[in-house]
């Protein structure tokens, strides 16, 4: 995983123009109870991604696709399926105006890329546009329109965890008793 996580994402934009998209919309409780024993099974979990917003999303999305949302994405529960369902759908990156704290933390720790947009994203992207995003620099290109724009790159330390494939992989490379002080200022 560490060597294979792409840092340049190319895919189609899926815009859900909504603030405060909560974890029950991303991965409904009914899906949670309907997948008993399967909540950690990637093939099962992915079927429920964003079900509360678009019941057919999982069937339509393709690897590398880019989800674009408003402020405070992922508010609500700590439940990881809200992250893993998107990750296992092959989503290349989620772009939000902002993320809930726990969602952001879970995504970094579970190795699912996410970035914030600053400049109003709808100036640059329409639903279905083909995009290319460099996760490290934040350089973005709308290939449908032939137009460049920027999103906010992740803090380098968080990018380290993400590009390792998540915190488990990162801790394996640092050593559990190793020096985590690389995370400091």
């Amino acid at each position: 995983m560490p060597d294979t996580m792409p840092t340049v994402i190319e895919g189609r934009a899926w815009i859900f123009d909504q603030d405060n998209i909560d974890t029950d919309l991303i991965f409904p409780l009914e899906s949670l109870f309907g997948t008993q024993g399967g909540i950690n099974n990637p093939g099962e979990v992915r079927k429920h991604a964003l079900k509360g917003l678009d019941p057919d999303f999982a069937a339509k999305v393709e690897p590398g696709d880019i989800v674009i949302v408003g402020a405070n994405f992922g508010c609500g529960s700590h439940r990881e399926q809200a992250v893993t369902s998107l990750k296992h759908s092959g989503i290349g990156v989620v772009l939000a105006k902002s993320f809930s704290r726990i969602y952001h933390r879970n995504a970094v720790n579970l190795g699912m890329p996410l970035l914030e947009w600053a400049d109003p994203i709808k100036k640059h992207v329409s639903d279905g546009d083909q995009l290319r995003i460099d996760l490290i620099t934040g350089e973005a290109e709308n290939q449908t329109r032939g137009h460049a724009f920027k999103v906010k790159p992740l803090a380098p330390i968080l990018m380290n965890i993400l590009s390792a494939g998540g915190l488990i992989e990162a801790v394996k490379s640092w050593g559990p008793d190793g020096d985590w002080t690389r995370l400091e200022r």
Binding site: H78, R79, E80, V83, I102, R105, N106, N109, L110, I157, I161, G166, L167, I168, V171, P176, D177, W180, L183
Partner: peptide, 16 residues
């Protein structure tokens, strides 16, 4: 924190 991170805290005693 999330459930996976909880496991990492149990194993290492620490978190970022």
């Amino acid at each position: 924190v999330g459930d996976t991170e909880l496991g990492i805290i149990l194993a290492t005693g620490k978190m970022w």
